[in-house]
Design a protein around this nucleic acid. Structure first.
Length: 480
RNA sequence: GGCGCUAUCGUCUAACGGUUAGGACGGAGCCCUCUCAAGGCUUAAAUACGGGUUCGAUUCCCGUUAGCGCUACCA
Protein backbone atom coordinates (compact mmCIF):
# COMPACT_ATOMS: atom_id res chain seq x y z
CA UNK A 1 0.00 0.00 0.00
CA UNK A 2 1.59 3.22 -1.15
CA UNK A 3 1.00 6.11 1.20
CA UNK A 4 2.60 9.54 1.02
CA UNK A 5 2.08 12.65 3.07
CA UNK A 6 2.56 16.36 2.72
CA UNK A 7 3.22 17.90 6.11
CA UNK A 8 3.26 21.69 6.16
CA UNK A 9 3.55 23.62 9.37
CA UNK A 10 1.12 26.50 9.62
CA UNK A 11 3.59 29.26 10.35
CA UNK A 12 2.87 31.48 7.38
CA UNK A 13 1.29 31.51 3.97
CA UNK A 14 1.81 28.62 1.56
CA UNK A 15 5.35 28.83 0.26
CA UNK A 16 6.03 27.92 -3.37
CA UNK A 17 8.67 25.44 -2.23
CA UNK A 18 6.10 23.72 -0.03
CA UNK A 19 3.64 23.75 -2.87
CA UNK A 20 6.19 22.06 -5.07
CA UNK A 21 6.77 19.36 -2.45
CA UNK A 22 3.04 18.86 -2.31
CA UNK A 23 2.88 18.58 -6.10
CA UNK A 24 5.60 15.94 -6.24
CA UNK A 25 3.93 13.94 -3.49
CA UNK A 26 0.62 14.17 -5.24
CA UNK A 27 2.06 13.17 -8.59
CA UNK A 28 3.79 10.18 -7.06
CA UNK A 29 0.67 9.04 -5.24
CA UNK A 30 -1.64 9.52 -8.19
CA UNK A 31 0.81 7.99 -10.63
CA UNK A 32 0.98 4.83 -8.58
CA UNK A 33 -2.52 4.56 -7.22
CA UNK A 34 -1.43 5.50 -3.72
CA UNK A 35 -3.02 7.50 -0.94
CA UNK A 36 -2.27 11.19 -0.50
CA UNK A 37 -2.32 12.42 3.05
CA UNK A 38 -2.30 15.99 4.30
CA UNK A 39 -0.86 16.28 7.76
CA UNK A 40 -0.67 19.60 9.51
CA UNK A 41 2.58 19.64 11.48
CA UNK A 42 1.59 22.13 14.12
CA UNK A 43 3.74 21.10 17.04
CA UNK A 44 5.31 24.53 17.31
CA UNK A 45 2.61 26.11 19.43
CA UNK A 46 4.41 29.43 19.56
CA UNK A 47 4.51 30.06 15.87
CA UNK A 48 1.56 28.43 14.23
CA UNK A 49 -1.65 30.30 13.59
CA UNK A 50 -5.07 29.36 12.39
CA UNK A 51 -4.91 32.11 9.83
CA UNK A 52 -1.88 30.49 8.32
CA UNK A 53 -3.60 27.12 8.27
CA UNK A 54 -6.50 28.63 6.37
CA UNK A 55 -4.20 30.23 3.83
CA UNK A 56 -2.37 26.95 3.28
CA UNK A 57 -5.62 25.10 2.73
CA UNK A 58 -6.75 27.84 0.39
CA UNK A 59 -3.51 27.63 -1.58
CA UNK A 60 -3.72 23.85 -1.90
CA UNK A 61 -7.31 24.08 -2.97
CA UNK A 62 -6.36 26.55 -5.67
CA UNK A 63 -3.80 24.12 -7.05
CA UNK A 64 -6.67 21.75 -7.63
CA UNK A 65 -4.85 18.70 -6.30
CA UNK A 66 -6.89 16.73 -3.82
CA UNK A 67 -5.90 14.58 -0.88
CA UNK A 68 -7.52 11.53 0.65
CA UNK A 69 -6.92 11.83 4.36
CA UNK A 70 -6.21 14.75 6.65
CA UNK A 71 -4.67 14.89 10.11
CA UNK A 72 -3.46 17.45 12.55
CA UNK A 73 -0.51 16.69 14.77
CA UNK A 74 -1.84 18.63 17.71
CA UNK A 75 -4.66 16.06 17.89
CA UNK A 76 -2.15 13.29 18.24
CA UNK A 77 0.20 14.49 20.95
CA UNK A 78 -0.44 11.47 23.16
CA UNK A 79 0.78 9.18 20.44
CA UNK A 80 4.01 11.13 20.14
CA UNK A 81 4.55 11.35 23.88
CA UNK A 82 3.93 7.65 24.31
CA UNK A 83 6.73 6.83 21.90
CA UNK A 84 9.16 9.10 23.75
CA UNK A 85 8.21 7.65 27.11
CA UNK A 86 8.51 4.18 25.74
CA UNK A 87 11.98 4.97 24.49
CA UNK A 88 12.87 6.40 27.88
CA UNK A 89 11.65 3.22 29.57
CA UNK A 90 13.73 1.09 27.26
CA UNK A 91 16.83 3.17 27.86
CA UNK A 92 16.91 4.33 24.25
CA UNK A 93 16.41 7.87 25.46
CA UNK A 94 17.32 9.81 28.58
CA UNK A 95 16.38 12.93 30.49
CA UNK A 96 18.47 16.04 30.09
CA UNK A 97 18.00 18.48 32.97
CA UNK A 98 20.17 21.20 31.47
CA UNK A 99 18.30 24.46 31.43
CA UNK A 100 18.09 25.92 28.00
CA UNK A 101 18.94 29.55 27.70
CA UNK A 102 20.38 32.12 25.35
CA UNK A 103 23.87 31.69 26.84
CA UNK A 104 23.77 27.93 26.98
CA UNK A 105 22.78 28.04 23.35
CA UNK A 106 25.90 28.91 21.42
CA UNK A 107 28.51 29.06 24.14
CA UNK A 108 30.69 26.23 23.04
CA UNK A 109 29.24 24.28 20.21
CA UNK A 110 29.30 26.46 17.13
CA UNK A 111 32.76 28.03 17.22
CA UNK A 112 34.83 25.73 19.31
CA UNK A 113 35.31 23.30 16.48
CA UNK A 114 34.25 20.47 18.72
CA UNK A 115 31.14 18.65 17.70
CA UNK A 116 28.37 18.89 20.21
CA UNK A 117 26.96 15.49 20.99
CA UNK A 118 25.35 15.70 24.40
CA UNK A 119 25.33 17.81 27.50
CA UNK A 120 28.04 16.58 29.86
CA UNK A 121 26.74 14.55 32.78
CA UNK A 122 23.22 14.12 31.49
CA UNK A 123 23.48 11.03 29.33
CA UNK A 124 25.52 9.26 31.96
CA UNK A 125 23.17 10.09 34.83
CA UNK A 126 21.95 7.07 36.77
CA UNK A 127 18.38 5.99 36.33
CA UNK A 128 17.74 6.55 40.03
CA UNK A 129 18.95 10.13 40.01
CA UNK A 130 17.09 10.86 36.82
CA UNK A 131 13.84 9.47 38.21
CA UNK A 132 14.30 11.26 41.50
CA UNK A 133 14.90 14.65 39.90
CA UNK A 134 11.98 14.18 37.54
CA UNK A 135 9.75 13.22 40.43
CA UNK A 136 10.90 16.35 42.24
CA UNK A 137 9.48 18.38 39.42
CA UNK A 138 12.70 19.46 37.81
CA UNK A 139 12.17 20.29 34.13
CA UNK A 140 13.89 18.14 31.54
CA UNK A 141 13.96 17.36 27.88
CA UNK A 142 14.08 13.80 26.60
CA UNK A 143 16.91 13.07 24.22
CA UNK A 144 17.70 10.14 22.00
CA UNK A 145 20.60 8.10 23.33
CA UNK A 146 22.52 7.84 20.07
CA UNK A 147 24.99 4.91 20.08
CA UNK A 148 28.52 6.08 20.84
CA UNK A 149 31.82 4.60 19.85
CA UNK A 150 30.25 1.59 18.24
CA UNK A 151 31.49 2.54 14.81
CA UNK A 152 27.98 2.01 13.58
CA UNK A 153 26.99 3.60 10.31
CA UNK A 154 23.38 4.41 9.50
CA UNK A 155 22.54 3.83 5.87
CA UNK A 156 19.64 4.35 3.55
CA UNK A 157 19.05 4.64 -0.14
CA UNK A 158 17.43 7.85 -1.20
CA UNK A 159 15.35 7.62 -4.36
CA UNK A 160 16.93 10.83 -5.58
CA UNK A 161 20.30 11.16 -3.85
CA UNK A 162 21.25 7.51 -3.83
CA UNK A 163 23.24 5.74 -1.11
CA UNK A 164 23.56 7.76 2.08
CA UNK A 165 25.65 6.94 5.09
CA UNK A 166 26.53 8.63 8.34
CA UNK A 167 28.34 7.46 11.42
CA UNK A 168 26.34 7.57 14.62
CA UNK A 169 29.36 9.33 16.09
CA UNK A 170 28.40 12.33 13.99
CA UNK A 171 24.81 12.41 15.19
CA UNK A 172 24.10 14.40 18.31
CA UNK A 173 21.68 13.37 21.03
CA UNK A 174 18.75 15.24 19.59
CA UNK A 175 15.66 16.19 21.58
CA UNK A 176 12.44 14.20 21.34
CA UNK A 177 10.26 15.75 24.00
CA UNK A 178 10.48 19.33 25.19
CA UNK A 179 10.41 20.36 28.81
CA UNK A 180 6.82 21.44 28.18
CA UNK A 181 5.98 17.85 27.33
CA UNK A 182 5.40 18.75 23.71
CA UNK A 183 7.07 16.61 21.06
CA UNK A 184 9.74 18.02 18.81
CA UNK A 185 9.35 17.90 15.05
CA UNK A 186 11.53 14.81 14.71
CA UNK A 187 9.53 12.80 17.22
CA UNK A 188 6.09 13.89 16.11
CA UNK A 189 6.87 13.46 12.48
CA UNK A 190 8.25 9.95 12.82
CA UNK A 191 5.64 8.80 15.31
CA UNK A 192 2.96 9.89 12.88
CA UNK A 193 4.71 8.41 9.89
CA UNK A 194 4.72 5.10 11.73
CA UNK A 195 1.13 5.36 12.85
CA UNK A 196 -0.14 6.50 9.47
CA UNK A 197 1.87 3.76 7.77
CA UNK A 198 3.60 6.19 5.44
CA UNK A 199 5.47 4.22 2.80
CA UNK A 200 7.33 7.04 1.05
CA UNK A 201 8.56 10.29 2.46
CA UNK A 202 8.98 12.90 -0.25
CA UNK A 203 10.28 16.16 1.14
CA UNK A 204 12.83 18.92 0.75
CA UNK A 205 16.54 18.19 0.69
CA UNK A 206 16.94 20.27 3.84
CA UNK A 207 15.83 17.09 5.61
CA UNK A 208 18.41 14.84 3.99
CA UNK A 209 20.73 14.85 6.99
CA UNK A 210 17.81 14.75 9.43
CA UNK A 211 16.88 11.44 7.89
CA UNK A 212 19.59 9.65 9.87
CA UNK A 213 17.93 10.79 13.07
CA UNK A 214 14.59 9.71 11.76
CA UNK A 215 15.87 6.26 10.93
CA UNK A 216 17.05 6.01 14.51
CA UNK A 217 13.55 6.85 15.71
CA UNK A 218 11.94 4.34 13.36
CA UNK A 219 14.31 1.74 14.70
CA UNK A 220 13.37 2.61 18.26
CA UNK A 221 9.72 2.29 17.30
CA UNK A 222 10.47 -1.15 15.99
CA UNK A 223 9.57 -0.60 12.37
CA UNK A 224 11.34 -0.55 9.04
CA UNK A 225 11.85 3.02 7.87
CA UNK A 226 9.86 4.13 4.82
CA UNK A 227 11.45 4.91 1.47
CA UNK A 228 12.88 8.40 1.16
CA UNK A 229 12.98 10.78 -1.77
CA UNK A 230 14.50 14.18 -1.15
CA UNK A 231 13.84 17.08 -3.47
CA UNK A 232 16.38 19.71 -4.46
CA UNK A 233 15.66 23.08 -2.93
CA UNK A 234 14.36 26.24 -4.59
CA UNK A 235 16.79 29.12 -4.50
CA UNK A 236 16.54 32.86 -5.08
CA UNK A 237 18.56 34.37 -7.96
CA UNK A 238 21.37 35.28 -5.57
CA UNK A 239 21.70 31.65 -4.58
CA UNK A 240 20.15 32.00 -1.17
CA UNK A 241 17.38 29.76 0.01
CA UNK A 242 13.96 31.11 -0.79
CA UNK A 243 12.54 32.62 2.35
CA UNK A 244 9.43 34.47 3.32
CA UNK A 245 11.35 36.89 5.43
CA UNK A 246 13.95 37.79 2.84
CA UNK A 247 12.04 37.55 -0.42
CA UNK A 248 8.54 38.53 0.58
CA UNK A 249 5.37 37.82 -1.36
CA UNK A 250 7.19 36.36 -4.37
CA UNK A 251 7.46 33.11 -2.45
CA UNK A 252 3.76 32.93 -1.73
CA UNK A 253 1.44 30.81 -3.83
CA UNK A 254 -1.30 33.39 -3.50
CA UNK A 255 0.84 35.95 -5.29
CA UNK A 256 0.82 33.72 -8.35
CA UNK A 257 -2.89 33.16 -8.06
CA UNK A 258 -3.67 36.83 -7.62
CA UNK A 259 -1.50 37.82 -10.56
CA UNK A 260 -3.39 35.62 -12.95
CA UNK A 261 -1.55 32.34 -13.09
CA UNK A 262 -3.49 29.25 -14.01
CA UNK A 263 -3.05 26.46 -11.48
CA UNK A 264 -2.04 23.95 -14.14
CA UNK A 265 0.66 26.32 -15.40
CA UNK A 266 1.88 26.82 -11.86
CA UNK A 267 2.11 23.08 -11.39
CA UNK A 268 3.80 22.71 -14.76
CA UNK A 269 6.42 25.31 -13.98
CA UNK A 270 7.33 24.07 -10.52
CA UNK A 271 7.56 20.49 -11.77
CA UNK A 272 10.15 21.60 -14.27
CA UNK A 273 12.20 23.13 -11.48
CA UNK A 274 14.27 20.16 -10.42
CA UNK A 275 12.59 17.52 -12.50
CA UNK A 276 12.68 16.66 -16.17
CA UNK A 277 10.65 14.28 -18.32
CA UNK A 278 13.96 13.64 -20.13
CA UNK A 279 12.57 14.64 -23.47
CA UNK A 280 12.05 18.10 -24.87
CA UNK A 281 8.56 18.62 -23.57
CA UNK A 282 7.99 21.76 -21.55
CA UNK A 283 4.32 22.53 -21.62
CA UNK A 284 2.51 19.64 -20.02
CA UNK A 285 -0.95 19.09 -18.68
CA UNK A 286 -1.59 17.57 -15.30
CA UNK A 287 -2.52 14.28 -16.95
CA UNK A 288 0.68 14.19 -18.91
CA UNK A 289 2.69 14.94 -15.79
CA UNK A 290 0.88 12.24 -13.91
CA UNK A 291 1.70 9.74 -16.61
CA UNK A 292 5.43 10.32 -16.80
CA UNK A 293 6.42 11.44 -13.33
CA UNK A 294 9.08 9.42 -11.55
CA UNK A 295 11.86 10.00 -9.05
CA UNK A 296 14.43 9.14 -11.72
CA UNK A 297 13.78 12.43 -13.42
CA UNK A 298 14.51 14.44 -10.30
CA UNK A 299 17.72 16.41 -10.27
CA UNK A 300 20.13 16.54 -7.39
CA UNK A 301 21.17 20.16 -7.59
CA UNK A 302 19.12 23.06 -6.32
CA UNK A 303 17.18 25.17 -8.79
CA UNK A 304 16.87 28.92 -8.85
CA UNK A 305 13.69 30.78 -9.57
CA UNK A 306 14.79 33.59 -11.77
CA UNK A 307 12.80 36.54 -10.50
CA UNK A 308 13.99 40.12 -10.15
CA UNK A 309 13.15 43.38 -8.43
CA UNK A 310 11.18 44.48 -11.47
CA UNK A 311 9.53 41.16 -12.19
CA UNK A 312 8.45 38.85 -9.37
CA UNK A 313 8.03 35.88 -11.68
CA UNK A 314 10.41 33.70 -13.61
CA UNK A 315 10.00 34.49 -17.30
CA UNK A 316 9.55 30.83 -18.02
CA UNK A 317 6.65 30.60 -15.58
CA UNK A 318 4.96 33.46 -17.36
CA UNK A 319 5.64 31.91 -20.75
CA UNK A 320 4.24 28.58 -19.60
CA UNK A 321 1.16 30.31 -18.30
CA UNK A 322 0.75 31.96 -21.69
CA UNK A 323 1.12 28.56 -23.34
CA UNK A 324 -1.66 27.15 -21.19
CA UNK A 325 -3.86 30.14 -21.90
CA UNK A 326 -3.30 29.87 -25.63
CA UNK A 327 -4.06 26.18 -25.84
CA UNK A 328 -7.17 26.33 -23.73
CA UNK A 329 -10.66 26.20 -25.25
CA UNK A 330 -12.05 29.70 -25.67
CA UNK A 331 -15.07 29.05 -23.49
CA UNK A 332 -12.89 27.81 -20.66
CA UNK A 333 -10.57 30.79 -20.84
CA UNK A 334 -13.53 33.10 -21.00
CA UNK A 335 -14.83 31.54 -17.82
CA UNK A 336 -11.51 32.22 -16.08
CA UNK A 337 -11.45 35.79 -17.30
CA UNK A 338 -14.94 36.67 -16.09
CA UNK A 339 -14.14 36.85 -12.38
CA UNK A 340 -10.96 38.84 -13.05
CA UNK A 341 -12.85 41.41 -15.07
CA UNK A 342 -15.74 41.60 -12.65
CA UNK A 343 -13.45 41.90 -9.65
CA UNK A 344 -11.98 44.98 -11.31
CA UNK A 345 -15.40 46.56 -11.31
CA UNK A 346 -16.51 45.96 -14.88
CA UNK A 347 -19.81 44.29 -15.42
CA UNK A 348 -19.42 41.97 -18.38
CA UNK A 349 -21.89 39.44 -19.53
CA UNK A 350 -20.72 35.95 -20.28
CA UNK A 351 -21.52 36.31 -23.96
CA UNK A 352 -19.63 39.57 -24.29
CA UNK A 353 -16.64 37.97 -22.62
CA UNK A 354 -16.91 35.02 -24.93
CA UNK A 355 -16.72 37.40 -27.89
CA UNK A 356 -13.72 39.27 -26.51
CA UNK A 357 -11.75 36.21 -25.50
CA UNK A 358 -10.57 34.95 -28.91
CA UNK A 359 -9.27 38.43 -29.68
CA UNK A 360 -7.03 38.51 -26.64
CA UNK A 361 -6.25 34.85 -26.09
CA UNK A 362 -2.79 34.96 -27.58
CA UNK A 363 -2.11 38.44 -26.30
CA UNK A 364 -2.22 37.85 -22.57
CA UNK A 365 0.32 35.89 -20.54
CA UNK A 366 -1.39 36.29 -17.20
CA UNK A 367 -5.15 36.40 -16.69
CA UNK A 368 -4.90 39.82 -15.12
CA UNK A 369 -3.50 41.29 -18.30
CA UNK A 370 -7.01 41.13 -19.69
CA UNK A 371 -7.65 44.41 -17.95
CA UNK A 372 -4.88 46.22 -19.76
CA UNK A 373 -5.50 44.54 -23.10
CA UNK A 374 -9.28 44.55 -23.30
CA UNK A 375 -10.18 47.65 -21.31
CA UNK A 376 -11.67 49.50 -24.29
CA UNK A 377 -14.21 46.72 -24.74
CA UNK A 378 -15.36 47.15 -21.20
CA UNK A 379 -15.67 50.89 -20.70
CA UNK A 380 -18.30 53.25 -22.07
CA UNK A 381 -15.95 56.17 -22.27
CA UNK A 382 -12.42 55.75 -23.61
CA UNK A 383 -9.61 56.95 -21.41
CA UNK A 384 -8.17 60.24 -22.72
CA UNK A 385 -5.45 59.86 -25.32
CA UNK A 386 -3.22 62.22 -27.27
CA UNK A 387 -4.79 63.21 -30.58
CA UNK A 388 -1.37 62.92 -32.20
CA UNK A 389 -1.79 59.17 -31.82
CA UNK A 390 -4.47 59.35 -34.51
CA UNK A 391 -2.05 60.47 -37.17
CA UNK A 392 -0.96 57.57 -39.35
CA UNK A 393 2.57 56.75 -40.40
CA UNK A 394 3.78 58.99 -43.24
CA UNK A 395 0.64 61.03 -42.88
CA UNK A 396 -0.64 64.17 -41.18
CA UNK A 397 -3.68 65.35 -39.27
CA UNK A 398 -5.55 66.08 -42.46
CA UNK A 399 -5.05 62.53 -43.62
CA UNK A 400 -6.27 61.24 -40.28
CA UNK A 401 -9.42 63.30 -40.57
CA UNK A 402 -10.04 62.14 -44.11
CA UNK A 403 -9.53 58.52 -43.11
CA UNK A 404 -11.88 58.85 -40.17
CA UNK A 405 -14.55 60.60 -42.24
CA UNK A 406 -14.30 57.86 -44.80
CA UNK A 407 -14.51 55.29 -42.00
CA UNK A 408 -17.75 56.85 -40.89
CA UNK A 409 -19.17 56.37 -44.34
CA UNK A 410 -17.75 52.90 -44.86
CA UNK A 411 -18.83 51.61 -41.48
CA UNK A 412 -22.30 53.03 -41.73
CA UNK A 413 -22.91 50.77 -44.68
CA UNK A 414 -20.68 47.82 -43.85
CA UNK A 415 -21.82 44.43 -42.79
CA UNK A 416 -20.44 44.13 -39.24
CA UNK A 417 -18.56 40.91 -39.65
CA UNK A 418 -14.81 40.37 -39.88
CA UNK A 419 -14.87 39.91 -43.64
CA UNK A 420 -17.49 42.56 -44.28
CA UNK A 421 -15.52 45.12 -42.28
CA UNK A 422 -12.28 44.26 -43.96
CA UNK A 423 -13.81 44.65 -47.43
CA UNK A 424 -15.47 47.95 -46.53
CA UNK A 425 -12.38 49.50 -44.97
CA UNK A 426 -9.99 48.38 -47.67
CA UNK A 427 -12.33 49.81 -50.24
CA UNK A 428 -12.47 53.03 -48.22
CA UNK A 429 -8.68 53.30 -48.28
CA UNK A 430 -8.69 52.80 -52.00
CA UNK A 431 -11.25 55.55 -52.44
CA UNK A 432 -8.96 57.93 -50.57
CA UNK A 433 -5.91 56.69 -52.38
CA UNK A 434 -4.05 55.90 -49.17
CA UNK A 435 -2.49 52.70 -47.91
CA UNK A 436 -4.68 50.30 -46.00
CA UNK A 437 -2.45 50.67 -42.97
CA UNK A 438 -2.86 54.43 -43.02
CA UNK A 439 -6.60 53.90 -43.03
CA UNK A 440 -6.57 51.36 -40.21
CA UNK A 441 -4.26 53.20 -37.84
CA UNK A 442 -6.46 56.20 -37.09
CA UNK A 443 -9.49 53.97 -36.77
CA UNK A 444 -7.72 51.68 -34.34
CA UNK A 445 -6.68 54.55 -32.12
CA UNK A 446 -10.09 56.17 -32.37
CA UNK A 447 -11.78 52.99 -31.32
CA UNK A 448 -9.24 51.55 -28.85
CA UNK A 449 -7.57 54.69 -27.57
CA UNK A 450 -4.10 53.41 -28.37
CA UNK A 451 -1.96 52.10 -31.18
CA UNK A 452 -1.42 48.62 -29.81
CA UNK A 453 -4.55 46.55 -29.86
CA UNK A 454 -6.09 43.32 -31.08
CA UNK A 455 -6.83 42.96 -34.82
CA UNK A 456 -9.06 45.75 -36.04
CA UNK A 457 -11.88 43.93 -37.83
CA UNK A 458 -12.60 41.53 -35.02
CA UNK A 459 -12.41 44.40 -32.59
CA UNK A 460 -14.92 46.48 -34.52
CA UNK A 461 -17.19 43.50 -34.83
CA UNK A 462 -17.30 43.04 -31.06
CA UNK A 463 -17.60 46.74 -30.36
CA UNK A 464 -20.55 47.09 -32.69
CA UNK A 465 -21.52 49.80 -35.16
CA UNK A 466 -22.93 52.25 -32.70
CA UNK A 467 -19.92 52.38 -30.40
CA UNK A 468 -17.49 52.40 -33.30
CA UNK A 469 -19.14 55.31 -35.04
CA UNK A 470 -19.46 57.30 -31.82
CA UNK A 471 -15.77 56.85 -30.98
CA UNK A 472 -14.70 57.82 -34.48
CA UNK A 473 -16.75 60.98 -34.34
CA UNK A 474 -15.12 61.90 -31.06
CA UNK A 475 -11.74 61.35 -32.62
CA UNK A 476 -12.55 63.65 -35.51
CA UNK A 477 -13.63 66.28 -33.02
CA UNK A 478 -10.31 65.89 -31.20
CA UNK A 479 -8.42 66.60 -34.38
CA UNK A 480 -10.28 69.83 -35.04
C1' G B 1 34.36 24.57 13.12
C1' G B 2 32.01 19.36 12.31
C1' C B 3 28.95 16.37 9.12
C1' G B 4 26.39 15.95 4.55
C1' C B 5 24.73 17.32 -0.47
C1' U B 6 25.64 19.72 -5.17
C1' A B 7 28.43 21.83 -9.56
C1' U B 8 26.52 21.85 -18.15
C1' C B 9 24.70 28.54 -21.73
C1' G B 10 22.07 34.39 -17.63
C1' U B 11 17.92 30.73 -15.89
C1' C B 12 15.44 25.65 -16.22
C1' U B 13 17.49 21.39 -18.28
C1' A B 14 19.23 16.90 -22.09
C1' A B 15 23.35 13.92 -23.34
C1' C B 16 24.64 3.66 -22.19
C1' G B 17 32.60 6.76 -21.55
C1' G B 18 32.78 8.25 -28.19
C1' U B 19 27.50 14.23 -30.14
C1' U B 20 29.60 19.94 -34.38
C1' A B 21 27.59 19.31 -25.99
C1' G B 22 20.84 19.15 -27.68
C1' G B 23 16.18 21.73 -26.17
C1' A B 24 13.39 25.63 -23.65
C1' C B 25 12.82 30.62 -21.48
C1' G B 26 15.02 35.23 -21.90
C1' G B 27 18.39 38.37 -25.52
C1' A B 28 19.68 39.85 -30.71
C1' G B 29 18.32 39.73 -35.98
C1' C B 30 15.16 38.42 -40.15
C1' C B 31 10.34 36.78 -42.24
C1' C B 32 5.00 37.01 -41.89
C1' U B 33 1.57 41.09 -41.00
C1' C B 34 -3.70 46.41 -40.30
C1' U B 35 -0.64 47.71 -34.85
C1' C B 36 0.44 44.25 -30.92
C1' A B 37 0.72 39.36 -30.23
C1' A B 38 1.13 34.41 -32.05
C1' G B 39 3.99 31.67 -35.62
C1' G B 40 8.49 30.56 -38.76
C1' C B 41 13.76 31.04 -39.54
C1' U B 42 18.74 32.61 -37.95
C1' U B 43 22.13 33.91 -34.06
C1' A B 44 25.15 34.83 -29.44
C1' A B 45 25.64 31.99 -24.93
C1' A B 46 27.82 26.39 -20.90
C1' U B 47 30.66 21.27 -19.17
C1' A B 48 33.99 25.65 -12.04
C1' C B 49 39.53 24.45 -11.44
C1' G B 50 43.56 20.74 -10.94
C1' G B 51 44.97 15.86 -11.03
C1' G B 52 44.16 10.81 -12.16
C1' U B 53 41.63 6.04 -14.64
C1' U B 54 40.92 5.19 -20.01
C1' C B 55 42.54 4.53 -26.82
C1' G B 56 38.87 8.34 -25.43
C1' A B 57 36.10 11.86 -20.10
C1' U B 58 30.34 16.58 -19.34
C1' U B 59 29.98 11.44 -17.79
C1' C B 60 34.09 7.31 -13.32
C1' C B 61 37.79 8.39 -8.97
C1' C B 62 40.63 11.99 -5.85
C1' G B 63 41.69 16.95 -4.45
C1' U B 64 40.68 22.32 -4.62
C1' U B 65 37.15 26.09 -4.93
C1' A B 66 32.24 27.74 -4.60
C1' G B 67 27.12 27.25 -3.23
C1' C B 68 23.52 25.01 -0.25
C1' G B 69 21.71 22.09 3.91
C1' C B 70 22.00 20.08 8.95
C1' U B 71 24.56 21.04 13.40
C1' A B 72 17.57 24.38 18.36
C1' C B 73 13.41 22.31 23.93
C1' C B 74 11.97 25.58 14.67
C1' A B 75 9.90 22.72 11.18
Amino acid sequence: MLRVRFAPSPTGYLHVGSARTFIFNWLYARRNGGTMILRIDDTDLERNTDESLQSILEGLKWLGLNWDEQYRQSDRLDLHRRLALDMLAKGLAYRDFTVAGPEAEDSDKSHSGATWLSNPGQREMSEEESDRRAAAGEPFVIRYRVPRGTGEVIRFTDAVYGEQAKSTDDIEDFALLRSSGAPTYHLASCADDVDLRISHIVRGQDHLTNTFKHILIFRAAGVEPPQFAHLPLLLAPDGSKLSKRKHGPVVSVTTYRDSGFMPQAFVNFFCLLGWSPKDDREKMTLDELKQVFSFEGINRSNAVINFSETDPFDAKAVWLNAEHIRTMPVAELSGHLMPVVNAAGFGVTAEKMLQITPLIQERIRLLNEVLAVADFFLVDELAPYDSAELIPKKGDAAMAVRALRQALISLAAAEFTHDGLEAALRAGAETLGIKAGQMFEPIRVAVCGRKTAPPLFGTLEVLGRETALARIEKAIAKLN
